[in-house]
């Protein structure tokens, strides 16, 4: 055994026990889902606005589970959108190009906002589409 090996190293992770913040967040999510059912008001919770230990994340993931839909958006890095076992309650994780999480949200609504095609992009896409059609037809004329 070398001298370095003789030093007892204990790797301490942030993990530890859950802090209890997951429970508070779940109640907040239920409240927002209730508001959505009653008045169609969408809601969002920023998961990074509270100090959450990995243990808290495990609790949250276990409590919310996985539903029928999983979607991936590629826009300045991937975004993963997972519907939880509670329809209308989405777990949204935005990554940057380097694979780091830049935002993590619980979204309440029919679909996460980033999934809806913005009308300005739709309009711009349409004009491009028409041009492509003209180009496709042009050689035949």
């Amino acid at each position: 055994m070398s001298a370095l090996d003789a030093i007892a190293v204990k790797v301490v992770d942030e993990a530890g026990a859950a802090s209890g913040n997951a429970t508070a967040l779940l109640h907040e999510a239920a409240k927002l889902l209730e508001a959505f059912v009653q008045s169609s008001t969408p809601g969002t919770i920023d998961l990074r606005s509270l100090p959450l230990t990995p243990g808290d994340y495990d609790e949250l993931r276990e409590a919310l589970g996985a539903g029928a839909v999983f979607a991936r958006v590629d826009a300045i890095g991937p975004s993963e959108l997972r519907e939880t076992r509670y329809p209308g309650l989405w777990w949204v994780t935005h990554f940057n190009d380097a694979g780091e999480i830049v935002a993590e949200l619980i979204e309440i609504g029919p679909v996460p906002q980033i999934l809806v095609a913005p009308m300005q992009d739709v309009a711009a896409g349409l004009s491009g589409f028409k041009e492509a059609l003209v180009d496709a037809i042009a050689p035949k004329l």
Binding site: G43, T44, D46, S49, A75, V102, L105, I114, D121
Partner: peptide, 21 residues
Amino acid sequence: SRRAFLKFCAAVTSLMALPPD
């Protein structure tokens, strides 16, 4: 794209601890 920009703004909003809505 506007989707990318919305995502960027979600990140900035989170960063600045503003209400995510």
